[in-house]
């Protein structure tokens, strides 16, 4: 199964690369990377537009799916995810602050990333604090949704009091976009992304134990509080990074890990982390390929498409659970 995912990923990458409305060949892709000619329009578009966008789709899908998987296992709840639990909202709130305060550093790329990471981490810690207080899985989801509502209210307040240009920047950000990353930013983002994924691979043993429930995991020697903090921190890194660049993207983190579990029929987290990253990457690449091929007819923000596809999948999952 893992081999199929491995083979599907480059296919999805190529489909994505070819899906823009200007015809660009595979040769231009290779040349733009290894033999770049600035005067060649095809190569220029490949390097400045297509490759960064493909890269963004890949890390957004992979990162959010792994973050969703970590949340679901930590809270022992298949309906958990960075979006549902309000971790995206934390990042959004802090990005709103950074864009709309008008302070130049805060609205720079670095300012936005830092704020998104801090926001995601703070809201991750808030939700884990609540998880100590409530016993039921549903209550925690409701608290996550309330955190989301609360932050959108604050964001609306900020919007009312900000000027037109700031409002425009924020509104565009909030629609979600995969075309904001530039070629030169790829190395830095890759480092943070790889840090998050490798970090999660070091959590395989604690995650496998958490499947048995928090109490059983503790009785088998797991340091629960420390593990929870590390999981939240890694989720915050992945979610914050992606939210900072792409805006909020819903349902990927919720739907993909569930699909992976159903496909693999396993709870082994080594397998689940790698597969979620692959399937998540493939899913967002294909969603974005669809968006690009429809661009001549209508503009669909990525967040809208993932919600249109993701929401019914989640409803199906709930029905499957309740049966």
């Amino acid at each position: 199964m893992l081999l199929i995912f491995l083979l599907l990923l480059p296919v999805a990458g190529v489909v994505h690369f070819m899906s823009g409305h200007l015809d660009i060949g595979f040769g231009d892709l290779v040349n733009s990377l290894f033999n770049f000619d600035e005067t060649n329009t095809q190569q220029l578009i490949a390097r400045e537009v297509r490759i960064p966008r493909m890269f963004t789709a890949l890390i957004a899908g992979a990162g959010l799916s792994v973050a969703g998987l970590l949340m679901q296992t930590l809270f022992n709840n298949p309906l958990a995810g960075p979006y549902v639990l309000g971790i995206n909202s934390g990042a959004s709130l802090f990005v709103a602050f950074s864009i709309m305060t008008g302070i130049p550093f805060l609205s720079s790329d670095l300012g936005i990333i830092t704020n998104a990471l801090i926001g995601a981490l703070i809201f991750g810690l808030i939700i884990s604090l609540f998880s100590e207080l409530v016993r039921s899985q549903i209550s925690l989801l409701l608290i996550g949704i309330m955190l989301g509502s609360f932050t959108s209210a604050i964001v609306s307040l900020l919007e009312v009091s900000s000027d037109a240009s700031e409002l425009k920047v924020f509104t565009l950000w909030a629609l979600g976009s995969l075309s904001r990353i530039e070629f030169d930013q790829i190395p830095l983002i890759s480092v943070v992304f790889i840090l998050g994924i490798v970090g999660s691979l070091f959590l395989i043993k604690p995650l496998n134990l958490l499947v048995l429930g928090q109490n059983q995991a503790r009785l088998l020697g797991l340091n629960y509080k420390r593990t929870r903090f590390v999981i939240i921190a890694i989720t915050a890194i992945l979610t914050g990074l992606i939210t900072a660049f792409c805006g909020p993207i819903a349902f990927v983190g919720l739907a993909v890990p569930n699909l992976v579990r159903i496909l693999l029929k396993s709870q082994h987290h080594g397998l689940l982390i790698v597969s979620s990253a692959f399937i998540g990457g493939i899913f967002v690449l294909l969603c974005d390929a669809l968006i690009q091929s429809l661009e001549n007819y209508m503009v669909i923000p990525i967040n809208v498409l993932t919600s249109i596809i993701g929401a019914p999948i989640v409803v199906l999952l709930i029905l499957r659970k309740l049966r």
């Binding site: 134990l209 499947v211 048995l212 429930g213 088998l220 020697g221 579990r261 029929k265 709870q267």
Partner: peptide, 17 residues
């Protein structure tokens, strides 16, 4: 514990954690 997709052998293996 209620768990999906955990085989008995995997569950027993958790005792070695």
């Amino acid at each position: 514990p209620h768990m999906d997709y955990v085989r008995s052998r995997e569950f027993i293996s958790a005792g070695r954690a």
